[in-house]
Amino acid sequence: MNTLDRFARLRAALADVDAHLVVIGAGRDATAAIVNLLAEEGARRVALTNEPLLYELALPDALYDAKLERIDPPAMNASWDDINAWREALARADAGLTSAFGIAEETGSMLLPPLAPDQRAVSLLPLHHIAVLRAGQIAPDVGRLVERWADGGDTDGSAVFVTGPSRTADIEKELVLGAHGPQRVTVVVLDD
């Protein structure tokens, strides 16, 4: 299967769960593209995790330069008050930027690994969750994604699989997006 086909399947799976795929081709400025994405939807308050990929893309600086209100993750020695303030800020944030361990093409399910200090709330409280991954992190299906995680040797810590924005159909089985979690999910794949 060539790379182009592979993205089509992921795009369709994400569309089925009302999530979006943005592919950034090799050679393009990924950082600028992501900042652009945020600008296009009028996001002003953006939270992020301290995952390595986000730093490799120099996103914290880029957000600062773009004059966005950046919500940084709490320090390891943060006080309970600091944590609370951070969560309140997340709850008001327009977008939360994270990376992921990998994504399953068949279902569009992302594995968000443990982060310290626990920053999973970045993918949960803001209205829009944006996850950035490299193309090599795409696995064909959930079984193989889990295999990669298990075989990788480190399954310690709390993790979560995320498949699209939060939803409920508890009223007459009519689908509503954005129940308690994000209303919008965008997966950004760096095709490098």
Binding site: A13, S79, I83, W86, A116, D118, Q119, S166, R167
Partner: peptide, 29 residues
């Protein structure tokens, strides 16, 4: 997980599969 999702609501996967491993090492969680 996938069978549960497909059988219960016809989804390929539920939106969240939360894997709680224990208390968090950091200040939050």
């Amino acid at each position: 997980w996938q069978l549960l999702a497909r059988s219960a609501t016809g989804q390929r996967a539920t939106v969240y599969l939360n894997m709680l491993h224990g208390p968090s090492p950091g200040p939050s969680g």
